[in-house]
């Protein structure tokens, strides 16, 4: 289960940003976990809650955006919602399609006072 080590890395970034901006209390953290990542949002939420207990982050909420998998056609440039197993562009019918979204694992923003 690597959600714990991802949570630790996430909180380390948050700690550095809080220090830089002189924020004392963390209210929320917004992250992006794409459909194709090997990361389970619910497990991440569980790890986050367990990790913030008794720390300056306690009480902060974790907001997770879950961008769906997208294909990008290399021939006509169309970007479209897809599944991993569908490789045909709905625009031009070509099958040279690359992954154009859904593999994000990003920290977007945070709020605090």
């Amino acid at each position: 289960m690597h959600e714990m080590s991802i949570t630790r890395t996430l909180l380390e970034t948050v700690r550095q940003e809080m220090e830089k901006a002189d924020i004392k209390t963390l209210r929320s953290v917004r992250i992006r976990v794409g459909e194709l990542t090997a990361v389970e949002p619910e497990a991440l939420r569980f790890c986050f809650e367990a990790s913030v207990k008794g720390t300056p982050f306690e009480g902060a909420s974790l907001e997770i955006e879950e961008p769906p998998l997208k294909g990008g056609c290399l021939t006509c440039g169309l970007v479209f919602g897809t599944t991993l197993f569908e490789r045909t562009c709905p625009g031009c019918g070509d099958s040279s399609v690359e992954i154009a979204g859904g593999n994000e694992l990003d920290i977007v923003s945070m709020e605090g006072v």
Binding site: I6, T9, L10, I23, I107, S109, E111, G112
Partner: peptide, 11 residues
């Protein structure tokens, strides 16, 4: 309340 944009990969 401060909102800070970070926009980087967690890893």
């Amino acid at each position: 309340m401060h909102e800070i944009l970070i926009e980087e990969k967690i890893l």
